[in-house]
């Protein structure tokens, strides 16, 4: 069973992609969540979906686009969507979270229109929505490696700026941090990550990979670095166990990974509660 993962190319691609997703999603997710932008991933994933549909439509109508992976259209739409969100956040300063439902609805609206224009697609849209192991190609993996390298490089070299902007945007600005550029670049990275990860986890579940491991980590982390570290560990546990069970039981990979992430969260919550209970009992006994 485990030997299959090395024997078949598509399983190897899936495994490497999963490991990369488990690394970059929670790292970006930690910054997103502390900035109260956890819904951002949801908004952008729907825009990505419309990009994929646009790519499929073009390849159906124009032969030239047949050779282009719809994933790249997803990335393009997602990046444009992230720029729109930044713009809308400025327009609605007092209601910054309003930007996300606007972009989310626009993305979904465009997606349904494109699907109706194409009169349906032969390609399995279900896999884009919920993730499917057998659909990961070498090209998808390369795209993810490229995005992952940029994300990790950015977080390595701009960690202190990202932290400063996330913790206190006004102070960062007064300290001379190029806040606008950092924010914009960060949103572009989130957009690219969502698009590149959708083959494994699926567009509709990608935001779970960005938020749930971080939610678990925030319960126990003693520092921001720890929050990132624990979130990454929880995400890797979810991805690896999720992929294993998805293959074993022939379930949708995205759903299985997300269920594993929820399971990890519940274990963390229960352990924390049990730990607090044990401490209380010990103190009572001592008293």
């Amino acid at each position: 069973m485990l030997a299959d993962w090395w024997q078949y190319d598509f399983l190897r691609y899936t495994l490497f992609s999963g490991i990369l997703i488990g690394l970059i999603c929670p790292i970006l997710g930690t910054f997103l969540i502390v900035r109260r932008l956890s819904m951002m991933a949801d908004g952008l994933s729907h825009v990505t979906l419309s990009g994929v549909a646009a790519g499929m439509l073009l390849s159906k109508k124009i032969a030239f686009f047949g050779a282009v992976n719809p994933l790249f259209f997803g990335m393009l739409f997602s990046v444009v969507g992230s720029l729109f969100i930044e713009r809308l956040r400025k327009v609605y300063k007092a209601y910054q979270d309003l930007a996300i439902p606007i972009i989310l609805s626009a993305g979904l609206g465009l997606f349904t229109v494109l699907v109706s224009i194409a009169d349906g697609f032969n390609t399995d849209l279900y896999s884009y929505l919920f993730g499917k192991i057998v659909t990961v190609s070498r090209e998808d993996l390369y795209a993810l490696i490229g995005v992952g390298a940029v994300v990790l490089g950015t977080v390595f070299f701009l960690y202190k700026e990202l932290f400063a902007v996330s913790f206190d945007e006004e102070h960062a600005r007064v300290s001379g941090v190029a806040r606008k550029t950092i924010n914009l670049w960060f949103m572009v990275l989130v957009a690219l990550t969502i698009a590149a990860s959708m083959r494994i986890v699926g567009v509709l579940l990608i935001s779970a990979m960005i938020t749930i491991p971080v939610a678990a980590s925030l319960q126990i982390a003693g520092s921001f670095r720890q929050a990132i570290l624990y979130a990454t560990i929880f995400a890797e546990i979810s991805v690896l166990s999720g992929l294993y069970f998805a293959y074993l039981l022939d379930w949708a990979s995205g759903g299985t990974i997300v269920l594993m992430a929820v399971l990890v969260l519940m274990v963390v919550l229960a352990s924390k509660k049990t730990g607090a209970w044990i401490r209380r009992m010990r103190e009572e006994n001592r008293a």
Partner: peptide, 18 residues
């Protein structure tokens, strides 16, 4: 910022960013 998962050290260090 009370709920932010950061230590005193991390917050003070962010004053050096510029």
């Amino acid at each position: 910022t009370g709920g932010f998962p950061a230590t005193v050290k991390e917050v003070v260090a962010s004053g050096l960013v510029g």
